[in-house]
């Protein structure tokens, strides 16, 4: 199977961060940023022996858009729960979800997506059985949450990182 060319992620991100921090695109800053990015990524290589190799960028862009929509939707949901808290306290609960995703970078991305969305917090992951413990603010329908995590987030992440 022919794989698409893989971009080394860390130096590129460091260069973009440097240029944004200095808020300029002049030649001097670009050269300095390239030198800085190469130096730092060489220096941290021994700290992180496993490089992240994302491919299929279009899947990643689709995932970002979907996550944005979900963040907006769950913001409205959590806001409604908070403003209506006087009548009814929410039914909180833990949820166990077996995962298929094994890649550590994919798991890290999944944890950030899940926790960054209001209403759900990643509260534990067992590396031997690969079971995720999820904490949900308004637990009404368990199957719907499992479906959301597995179909909407896990499958694109598996396509990107595996």
């Amino acid at each position: 199977m022919k794989r698409p060319p893989v971009v080394p992620l860390l130096p590129v991100v460091l260069l973009i961060v440097w240029l944004l921090l200095n808020d300029s695109l002049s030649l001097g800053h670009v050269l300095l940023g390239v030198a800085f990015a190469l130096f730092v990524s060489a220096a941290v290589r021994r700290l992180r022996p496993l490089p992240a190799l994302p491919h299929r960028i279009h899947v990643a862009i689709g995932l970002c858009w979907r996550v944005f929509l979900d963040i907006v939707r769950s913001n409205i949901g959590v806001g409604r729960v908070i403003l209506g808290a006087a009548q009814r306290q929410p039914t909180i609960g833990f949820l166990k979800i077996p995962l298929d995703l094994r890649d550590p970078h994919g798991l890290a991305m999944l944890s950030i997506i899940v926790t960054g969305t209001p209403g759900t917090v990643w509260s534990g992951h067992d590396p031997t059985t690969n079971v995720l413990t999820l904490h949900v603010l308004d637990l009404q329908d368990e199957d719907a949450w499992i479906h959301t995590i597995k179909d909407r987030y896990e499958r694109p992440l598996m396509e990107i990182f595996e």
């Binding site: 963040i71 907006v72 969305t117 209001p118 904490h135 603010l137």
Partner: peptide, 13 residues
Amino acid sequence: FARIHAPTMGGTL
């Protein structure tokens, strides 16, 4: 455990 979800709203959107 309910409160931990609330500040995420201000933190993201």
